[in-house]
Nucleic acid binder design. Structure first.
Lengths: 259, 259
DNA sequence: CCGGGCGGTTCATTATTTGAACCAAAGGTT
DNA sequence: AACCTTTGGTTCAAATAATGAACCGCCCGG
């Protein structure tokens, strides 16, 4: 791994749960020397990627991301399209909708939308990184991924997040064909207990799955009617989002109008 | 300069005008070897900071900024506050409002808002980086900056962007005291010809100027009434924004209610 | 069919990164 | 108040990683 990668990986340490971290803690979590961490953070800070704050001189993500995210949006409008789709999904289904994009072998949640209807909602604040084998979003992505990528994921350690998490490679592999046939994936309590979620893949311009659109509901509220509603909405909105982002569903993807 | 800084500075090459750049072009503009650029871009790409696109394999800013900008917003809510203030500023004044933050010795424009009123508007798309000596925003920041920082800026090369750009260190120095007394800075055609702009500084939690809030109007439309309106609005909205961002105006800052 | 541009790769040379040991300062505990 | 631990930050010789000229194969226009 290059020096630059080490520096960039320091940025991965920040999360909603830990938005500010001290020097020693960063070095410890990243598994690098304190002096090295200090120098790398200095370089990141010079470019506005991190900044120091407070009397403890803790580090947090810097202001450069405002500018760069705006620039990214200018060249690849995505946020607005995603937001609109999520809003309408959560409105219609009355449940939490979220979108995540593939990053290495995990899914990063980039946006979510809560419904105003119910008191209980599946919350997404603490689910920034989704595991491919443990979520409906992950299964949706795997189902349309290249076989060697799937095998690499299934070969790696499959963390058992909950008692219901699928960790048997064979079982997961067997689930992918039905997902491909129906166009969406389902997970019941695989990531968080008592959460029933549906997901459809979103494709890029090369027809490769680049992420997933999902609706998560409390298991207690799931029923055939709600499931049918969510599935129909996801297939329709997923197809629309893929188009909005300039992507194409592969020819093998089931036609959305097939009810 | 460290290796990491070189990699990060590649990100500065992207702009609204050039959102996608090829490998050779990147190496040329950054003044580094093609092989080096290739390796650095590879590391950036592995973390989602850039991505390759199209048959030409050009590079553009990557999707990681969506996630990181969202995280930055979660720890330092800024964008929403800025947006709201800008919107109301451009509505009330009928002119273009913009916000920029200090980054080294330039100002990065992070957001702007156009008014719906006039056909002619000062456009901000091509003004991502503002020079401190040539803009009202820059003068507003300089007026409340530490003397050694001011001297360092005035010592450096002062680019003459237009015939009206101030480039005499002595003259600029002399302008800062009146700015401090009134609370806002003015620039007439110093950055773009025929643009008349006003700006107030925005302060951070240490009462240091972290950026500026500005209103830019075509010179032809400027008159005493409009100037008075803009000045009053800027002082009020600037004070509010400083507070919204968790900052504090220094004791020396003129009270906004002093009409 | 020939340049000349492109993206990407190789490998010996070189300069940069690295980390143990070291500060001074700031709590916590006895 | 003496002590221990941990904090952010610094130093410098040793070791590792970055570097760039030359090199592909490719595609496009002449």
């Amino acid at each position: 791994m290059g020096t630059t990668s080490k520096a960039l990986s320091l940025l991965e340490l920040f999360s909603r749960a830990t938005p500010e971290i001290g020097l020693s803690e960063i070095a410890r979590r990243a598994g690098i020397n304190k002096a090295t961490a200090h120098r790398l953070l200095g370089e990141l800070a010079a470019h506005g990627f991190v900044e120091q704050v407070g009397p403890a001189r803790s580090y947090r993500l810097g202001p450069a991301f405002l500018r760069l995210a705006a620039l990214r949006e200018a060249s690849v409008p995505m946020r607005d399209a995603v937001r609109g789709v999520l809003r309408s999904l959560s409105d219609v289904t009355g449940e939490t909708a979220h979108m995540s994009v593939l990053h290495g072998s995990v899914l990063d949640t980039i946006a979510y939308s809560y419904a105003s209807a119910h008191g209980t909602q599946v919350r997404m604040e603490d689910a920034e990184k989704l595991l491919l084998h443990a979520t409906s979003s992950g299964l949706a992505v795997l189902a349309w991924s290249a076989p060697d990528f799937v095998e690499r994921v299934l070969a790696g350690p499959l963390v058992k997040r909950t008692p219901d998490t699928l960790t048997d490679p064979g079982e997961i592999r067997a689930r992918l064909a039905p997902i491909r046939a129906r166009g969406f994936a389902v997970s019941v309590g695989g990531f968080e207990a008592d959460v029933h979620s549906h997901a459809v893949p979103i494709f890029d311009s090369a027809s490769a799955p680049m992420g997933a659109l999902a609706v998560a509901a409390p298991s207690a509220r799931m029923c055939p009617d709600l499931a049918a509603l969510i599935q129909g909405e996801l297939l329709e909105k997923g197809a629309r989002l893929t188009r909005l982002l300039g992507g194409f569903a592969p020819a093998s993807f089931p036609a959305p109008q097939a009810a």
